[in-house]
Nucleic acid binder design. Structure first.
Lengths: 201, 201, 201, 201
DNA sequence: TATGAATGAGACTTCATTCAT
DNA sequence: TATGAATGAAGTCTCATTCAT
């Protein structure tokens, strides 16, 4: 029992170290020996906890998806009744997501730069996660259509993915910005206005 | 001069082969020997035309950027006078861009999956290209503001990047779709409506 | 004493598991962890009963030698008085040996395929065991010479080893045969006729 | 053309070095780096000529089989007309085979000690080679039956394998003997007498 | 006595790059 | 200019053995 806890802790330590190193140096530049070294363990020990380098990276990606998913799923789509409520909700989620990426710079690095192209199965996994995130956004849109504060003829699934693409580009940009706070506000405002009012005069 | 032409042709042959292989197998899975093999040249010869593996990949990325840039810059922003003209223009560019990615599957694979994370300097180069693409979109927005058919208070630079993010997510999705034609129409429609009219009822 | 018995029993359980695994998977493909796993003991426990991997393999070879030795020494050479008695004796030993190898497929696998080349000292041990088996056969030949039913000028030590070589090749072949029973009869008959009557017309 | 020759020579140099090292140190104790070191080449170079360690060992075994096969097939079975001619023939082949193994100590070491148990497919290959060697001996026996100087009722295929087993045990023993010459004569004599006249008085 | 977490030497193999021909 | 043989750094992974609990 204590034994199992220690093992679980060690697994998480390794995961944490890998998360950091993959974020800092990149997947291909990070050796198993590097991960072992920062933890001051033998690199054979690593292989007691994870099958191989791809295996730990997959777990790192799971962690990334989980972190983002926590924010994405942090609100209840169906409770929103008016456009203003939706706008407020959008802003809250946006704030949390931008804060998440700004506070943890590895997140964006891993998701947007390291993960793609490592492994086709992993690309698929990320794609499915994006689909899930899309389905959350879609629920908001569907709710809005039902409640009547969003256009009844909007293509919810595609629009949801388009909206999410803007948001992810936003977090990517904000996280790299010289003044993240200012950038965050600009992006949240630009996206919500574009979404709700459109660009037409 | 004929000499120089031959060299240039050979350079392009190598670039073409590399483009194809990087798109099919990925950067790390493609060897210099593979590239040489498809051209039936010695792999030592490769090094007479490109400095190293990263060098050729950079040139592949240049090609990718150039292909996209050709579409992005295919219209003149300032000639548009009305919202309807802008809508038509958007649709034309969208069509061309989606067609480009659908007709050449390596383009999306390289841009979205292979390029990220290879090299930080290369990531920067792509970022700058995205900035350039953003500045094109921005010109349309600025023109629309000036002509009065777009909202005067919209944040043109940020909104332009957001719009482009939707478009790139669209081409990525459409290129992977089972029915690209249908997907393309849906995405173009969803994006233009979202942009111009917004989602609010 | 009960303590000592338990220890001895555990030693034999480990030996049995090792015997089976070395026979099935081979020496190099069998891990200490594999052996411990089939016994559902910790693999550290293994080292309380055997010094190391080679040590247990040496004990496995001892077991192999013992099993064969049991058959080889199962008859009394000096009681045989006539050629017919010797022929009958030969056939009895042959039957037992062939049955032993057919009933226990690991025996041949370990003796003929796994043991050679593991360790020079172990090769020597097996060589000495073969010498001992040779000396048994030699006793029959010497007895036959003394009793006058075998040629007086035959080179007993060398001929004994030659005879044993035939027998071991026989058991190796029979154990691998599609129809072991038929093969066994053929080999026993071929060897006894070759031995006693020779091939000349 | 000279190019191809050089490559072939290098392949054979590597094969020779591997043959020697596998014979001296054993398969598992020999590294690719060892082989490269004795040839003073980079160990990456090894992999230009052989796929991997097992691959070169298979080629070593091919060489072993070829060397033995050269002796085994050095006489024409059907030309023998009398028992004395057969005896002489047997002795010639025996001499050559014993000389081969005595002059090249690696041969026996590799065949009898290193090869078994490395790889099941390789074991099969050796088994098939032994079958081929058996079929040669069988031809002598069949010829003898036809010509009437060997017993008409002998089981040629099985007896051939039994005879070969004696011969291989002989070469193995002689090659290890303190006085190989004396041992060789004893073995050749013991085997031929056993074969042709049997042991009965 | 039993355990199994930790270790790290060591082996194989790949491949970008060089350079003599 | 073209070639491809040679190189060796570098990296992944295994597993016998130890030892603290």
């Amino acid at each position: 029992m204590a034994r199992a806890d220690l093992i679980e802790r060690r697994r998480e330590e390794i995961l944490g170290a890998a998360y950091r190193l993959f974020g800092e140096k990149g997947y291909h530049e990070t050796n198993i020996a590097d991960i072992a070294a920062v933890l001051e363990i033998g690199h054979g020990t690593f292989y007691r906890y994870y099958q191989n380098k791809l295996d730990i990276f997959i777990h790192v990606i799971d962690l990334v998806i989980e972190k983002i998913g926590g924010v994405v799923a942090s609100e209840e789509p169906r409770t929103t009744e008016t456009l203003d409520e939706y706008r407020a909700q959008l802003q809250r989620i946006g704030e949390r997501l931008f804060d998440l990426f700004v506070s943890d710079r590895h997140l964006a690095q891993i998701l947007f730069y390291e993960a793609p192209g490592i492994d086709r199965a992993l690309d698929e996994k990320i794609e499915r996660a994006l689909d899930v995130f899309g389905s959350f956004t879609e629920q908001y849109l569907v709710n809005g259509k039902k409640k009547g504060f969003l256009r009844g003829d909007l293509n919810a699934p595609v629009t949801a993915l388009a909206v999410n693409a803007m948001i992810f580009e936003g977090v990517r940009r904000v996280q790299r910005a010289t003044h993240p706070k200012k950038a965050k506000d600009e992006w949240i405002r630009a996206i919500t206005r574009l979404m709700l009012e459109g660009l037409a005069a």
